[in-house]
Design a protein around this nucleic acid. Structure first.
Ligand code: SF4
Ligand code: SF4
Lengths: 135, 135
DNA sequence: TTTTTTAGGATTATTTTTCTCCTATTTTCT
DNA sequence: AGAAAATAGGAGAAAAATAATCCTAAAAAA
């Protein structure tokens, strides 16, 4: 019931880019500053790009930059970019995974809790997290 | 970011005992009724017992029974019995796991979210879940 | 054209999850 | 007492998920 290391790394990476002066950063710098293994960081950035949270520019003076304002990128966005749709139990996201769904009294609870949890995660944006560091 | 299959099984097992006429059930019946592999169910019941949620009686006419009223056993109780203390990121439950804790702006968020989530899970008890089935 | 930097597929290593097996012990019933 | 029913618990195997690594290609700027 925890986010994965990969997701934690992704949040760190996004935070680094958001907090950077220029608004963009190369994988090498992100990796070093946030203690994320270099090649793993590269993979993570690719996922974030496919999810549309960042874009890249190749070559000298290239790097990754955010596609939206830090205030418009929430923890939920980052988590779902890495882990896929948020759910607290397999049956919430894939009804075929369990043949008890139709008669299960717990299933609706997981659906409801997912929404509550998602709302909480939406409330925290990159901007909030940067401000906590440099008030 | 999901509960494990084991935890889902544990909830089913508890629910079966709580809903049973006699208030107790043997592993074989629980396993069959809830489609939980027999030996795995036995292991799960042991964990639940160590957590103090059930007690067992050996021998003929034995089985497992709840130590508290169904209205006094919450989803959080069951989840923590199986998975250990609830946390959404490793650093919440083990501060030594990450040497960035002291300077990390995300860490306090995970602590806060854990509490919100735990509260939500506390609100659902076995009694609520049984009533949903047989209103 | 050279250097910098991302893109992406293939692959490996590690850890966690999901079980199974076997033997011991306790309790009840006959 | 003895047989049967049931949990207790350790050891460990199989499968899946996580956490990386490696290598080659492609793009863009200088
Ligand atoms: S038993 Fe209920 S809660 Fe568990 S996976 Fe199936 S539908 Fe979901
Ligand atoms: S980086 Fe922050 S949130 Fe992530 S594990 Fe470390 S302390 Fe926790």
């Amino acid at each position: 019931m925890q986010i994965t290391r990969e997701t934690d790394y992704a949040i760190r990476c996004m935070l680094y880019i958001a907090a950077s002066e220029s608004g963009s950063a190369v994988v090498g710098d992100i990796s070093e500053a946030q203690s994320v293994p270099r090649t793993f960081a590269a993979k993570i950035m690719q996922k974030l790009q496919r999810a549309g949270l960042v874009k890249s520019k190749r070559g000298v003076k290239g790097g990754y930059f955010l596609t939206r304002e830090p205030s418009e990128i929430s923890l939920l966005d980052i988590i779902e970019a890495i882990e896929g749709p948020l759910s607290l139990n397999i049956c919430v996201v894939d009804k075929n995974s369990c043949d008890r769904v139709s008669q299960c009294s717990v299933h609706p609870i997981w659906v409801e809790l997912r929404d509550i949890f998602a709302e909480s995660l939406k409330r925290y944006t990159l901007k909030d997290l940067i401000n906590l560091n440099t008030p």
